[in-house]
Design a protein around this nucleic acid. Structure first.
Length: 888
RNA sequence: GGGCGCAUAGCUCAGCUGGUUAGAGCGCUGCCCUCACAUGGCAGAGGUCGAAGGUUCGAGUCCUUCUGUGCCCACCA
């Protein structure tokens, strides 16, 4: 009989789970009864990715929702895939090369791309497999990659369309430059971090006035080599006389003008600013206004170039030290103040980025942002939690142009060719396919742009490019026309992501969706928290505080990982290893409850009709109660999932299954399985609970389901339980609560007076309320199933037995004769304490009800409720006094 | 400099539009290896809801200020 192991251990049956996805090719296009689409936009992980807790949380949330919708009969689509992650992937392969002592320039673009593709082919599936282990029920055979051939077509299409619309331009601007990755970055890709730095005060001698100087303050003294001016505020009295004069740039001895510009803040530093147009965006703007030429002093790798004079060849930070030394020697360093400021870092390699003047491609964002802003204002797209709406709107309102060119090789090469024969500025040809000749001069000397596009320039097309946009005559996987499938699932329904992705991706997808599809890409954006360690630090490889989800899966099981993560996910999650015990224990409870039921209830007793054809009145109280609990829990869980309150849904499930079903219903009835009605209810609730649990814990539930009804196919495509309000009964829940309270108090008496669990007691239950007395009598068996009792007697009057332990529940008093065992004084003390507590409530309530303001202003039903409560308390007080007197 | 969160039991958090005696998990204490589960069962202890004002018949819940704490954005060098 006992062939089922006592532990649900993921590892024991892991081989089966490897088979899981093969067996369960059910996650799309199954016979969805409603034929209504429901789709989720997955944040495609980096192809270099390795599953971390953030992925686990993100994907579990999505999986709960998609499994729920699938069970509700929707035709679901959850398209998985990976992002080519330009810089990240190239970095990985460059590190490989470095081990061979080579750089990408040594092997050239062609070979480098070959190696990149080879790497992708070998390791690109890692994260996908890991998501499978987590249980993500994606449409796996739709798996996409942002550099798939047709996806690349979409990227080119978008570039050409935006260019033709005048929304893409090329220009020389200050951008964020990563000297390690040697590429431009967008503003979002430069992470600003507060840093303790220094403010250096440097003297710039005035030309022709020996002994006088102007002092400027800077945090990056090495950039002085690129200075072409000094600016002061036009109204600054201190410097009025200097405007129009020249200062001599120390070290390089370049003569540069002093200009007046309202941008300068007189209160900061000395009120005089060095102007370095090539290395600071503000300075660039000022330089343009005052015709100060930019001088670039840096090589792309952060080493100073020939414009740096003697400092050429030094790294930028070495140069900083060297220049400070030199200025000290020249007695031109006035002072150094410590200064905290935000410094930009490359989001891929964490190197300090440089503001750098260079020729790049940009997208003009304001026209795209306008409709995206409006869609959210109009409520077509909602953020959960709501506060992120503001963050989104604020960014959209202050949007800046997007630098989309990257000086790397891994990515979509910009579809631009330059004619060698035409004039600079007129030589640009933008086309989806390589042009043979220049349309202007017919020359065939064309050279393609070297740069590739920002990875996010492909990611922002994900919700529609994955379906093969723009639609082509080619068929999609199901033999349908691309466009049909695209239009069926687009706009999608939900997007789950972390807050740091709102700007990178969410906002841009909304813009792209509206621009190219003419419709929002999704209606609900759910922003989840960040997974942190127990100390609240972000989990990261470099900190070494990361908990590996795969290790948790091995040790606790994927269900445990999923359940524990979600139940802990209010805002940010503070996770330590022990946190996963809750999920493991719950999975174990489910497993063992099913084991009990499956081994004790034979198949012929599993028919739900046995009880479902009955009326509530024909069932005993515990059954009415547990059925009521089940159906109200069902409704609450459905509602919680629909409103994105996932951790609440899990709490409800936990409470019902463990605290109600296992602790009470099974405990009361586990010796009654021969009763056909009881066994039919037990089995039904077990089976339906497995359905309810499935979105949260797919593995254990799928396994149990296969033991029950393998022939019905996977649980993943069974139906969500049907709501049945008519079985929800407040009365049943209230009456059962009385029984539960009595049993608990009786057990408490036993525990308090150290009566062994196996030892029986006598008990007299008394109530003057005939209805309650009937309730007790009818359910005597329930009480006796829960606690060992010799003789259980009922009475209208409270008995006065010497040496009794007593108690009061609702309108019932009870007495347990324990003469010689209990301490009467202690017993009295407890009742006196209860009386005191009740007196407090009575005083409070009488006061409230005595106040005219309350009676007048509070709603009638509240007043009525309070009146009833007062009477209740007064009755209780009387009963307790009776108990107290009986002890004398 | 702007914006957004959070502060409730020893720990981690629930508490949705203000209305019974503020809940859960972990941890803790005591008793149980009872034939599904010790990854278990039973019982219990533990909170003046960060501080001070205010609105209200009524505040953990709304408003103001403060304190502590975390995050995001920003071109003051």
């Amino acid at each position: 009989m006992n062939e089922i192991p006592t532990r649900f251990n993921f590892n024991v049956i892991e081989p089966q789970w490897c088979q899981y996805w093969e067996d369960h090719k059910v996650f799309h296009g199954h016979a969805a009864p409603e034929k209504k689409p429901y789709s989720i936009v997955i944040p495609p992980p980096n192809v270099t990715g390795i599953l971390h807790m953030g992925h686990a949380l993100n994907n579990t949330l999505q999986d709960i929702l998609i499994r729920y919708k699938r069970m509700r009969g929707f035709e679901t689509c959850w398209m998985p895939g990976t992002d080519h992650a330009g810089i990240a992937t190239q970095n990985v392969v460059e590190r490989q090369l470095a081990k061979e002592g080579k750089t990408r320039y040594d092997i050239g673009r062609e070979q480098m791309l070959q190696r990149l593709w080879a790497w992708k082919d070998q390791y690109g599936g890692t994260i996908i497999n890991q998501l499978k282990k987590l249980g993500s029920s994606c449409d796996w055979d739709r798996t996409r990659f942002t550099m798939d051939a047709d996806y690349s077509e979409a990227v080119k299409e978008v570039f050409v369309r935006l260019y033709d619309k005048g929304l893409i331009y090329r220009g020389k601007h200050i951008i964020n430059w990563c000297p390690r990755c040697q590429t431009a970055l967008s503003d979002e890709e430069a992470e600003h971090r507060e840093q303790q730095g220094a403010l250096y005060y440097i003297r710039y001698p005035l030309k022709g006035r020996p002994g006088t100087h102007l002092t400027v303050a800077t945090t990056r003294p090495e950039t002085m080599l690129g200075d072409t001016g000094v600016a002061v505020h036009p109204d600054d009295e201190r410097y009025k006389n200097f405007i129009g004069q020249k200062v001599v740039l120390p070290i390089l001895q370049r003569e540069i003008p002093v200009v007046a510009d309202a941008f300068v803040n007189p209160a900061f530093g000395t009120g005089a600013v060095k102007v370095t147009p090539a290395h600071d965006p503000n300075d660039f703007a000022m330089g343009t206004r005052h015709h100060l030429d930019p001088i670039n002093i840096l090589h792309p790798n952060g080493v100073l170039n020939e414009n740096a004079g003697d400092f050429a060849g030094l790294d930028r930070f070495e140069a900083r030290e060297a220049i400070i030394e030199t200025l000290k020697e020249l007695k031109l360093l006035e002072k150094v103040e410590s200064h905290t400021h935000a410094v930009g870092h490359c989001y891929r390699c964490h190197t300090v980025v440089e503001p750098y003047l260079s020729q790049q491609w940009f997208v003009k964002m304001a026209p795209l942002a306008q409709p995206a802003l409006q869609a959210v204002l109009d409520g077509k797209i909602t953020f959960t939690p709501d506060r992120w709406t503001k963050v989104y709107l604020n960014w959209m309102e202050n949007i800046r142009d997007w630098c989309i060119s990257r000086q790397i090789w891994w990515g979509h090469r910009i579809p631009v060719w330059y004619c060698q024969n035409c004039k600079e500025g007129e030589n640009i040809i933008v086309a989806k396919t390589e042009p043979k000749i220049c349309p202007r001069c017919q020359s065939s000397q064309l050279v393609q742009e070297e740069d590739v596009l920002d990875t996010w320039f492909s990611s922002w097309l994900w919700p529609f490019a994955t379906f093969g946009w723009p639609p082509q005559k080619g068929n999609d996987r199901e033999g349908k026309d691309n466009e049909e499938t695209l239009r069926y699932f687009y706009p999608t329904n939900a997007l789950f992501t972390a807050s740091e992705i709102i700007f990178f991706w969410v906002a841009r997808m909304i813009m792209a969706g509206l621009e190219f599809m003419g419709e929002i890409p999704f209606s609900d954006v759910y922003i989840h928290g960040t997974v942190r360690d127990a100390q609240g630090r972000k989990m990261s490889k470099s900190l070494g505080n990361a908990i590996d989800p795969l290790e948790i899966i091995k040790e606790y099981g994927a269900d445990a990982l999923r359940f524990s993560l979600i139940i802990n996910s209010g805002q940010d999650l503070y996770i330590s290893k022990e946190k996963f015990e809750i999920g493991r224990n719950f999975a174990n409870k489910i497993w063992n409850a099913s084991r009990l039921i499956l081994t004790h209830i034979p198949e012929h007793q599993r028919q739900p009709e046995c009880w479902m054809t009955m009326t509530p009145g024909q069932l005993d109280l515990p059954s009415r109660w547990i059925i009521s609990r089940f159906y109200s829990t069902l409704d609450e869980i459905s509602k919680a999932i629909e409103t994105f309150r996932f951790s609440e849904a899990e709490s409800l499930l936990y409470e019902f299954f463990w605290r109600n079903f296992c602790d009470w219903y099974l405990e009361i009835n586990k010796t009654n399985f021969s009763d056909p009605v009881i066994s039919s209810i037990v089995f039904f609730l077990m089976e339906q609970s497995i359905h309810l649990t499935h979105p949260f814990m797919p593995f254990v539930t799928e396994e149990i389901h296969s033991q029950i009804k393998k022939e019905a196919g996977p649980l993943a495509v069974q139906s969500w339980p049907e709501s049945r309000r008519e079985w929800i009964s407040q009365d049943a829940e209230k009456d059962m609560q009385i029984l539960i309270d009595i049993i608990t108090q009786l057990r408490n008496i036993k525990a308090q007076w150290q009566i062994k669990p196996g030892q029986a007691i006598d008990c007299i239950l008394a109530s003057e309320d005939p209805k309650q007395l009937t309730l007790l009598k009818t359910n005597a068996a329930v009480i006796q199933a829960a606690i060992k009792i010799n003789t259980l007697t009922f009475s209208q009057e409270f008995p006065n037995v010497k040496g009794q332990a007593t108690g009061l529940v609702d309108k019932t008093t009870f007495s347990v004769p324990l003469s010689g065992i209990i301490d009467v004084q202690e017993e009295k003390k407890q009742i006196v304490q209860q009386l005191q507590d009740i007196q407090k409530f009575i005083t409070n309530l009488s006061q409230r009800l005595g106040s005219g303001a309350f009676i007048q202003k509070a709603p009638a039903d509240v007043v009525q409720k309070e009146r009833e409560r007062l009477i209740d308390f007064q009755n209780k007080k009387q009963e307790l006094e009776k108990l107290l007197n009986s002890l004398d």
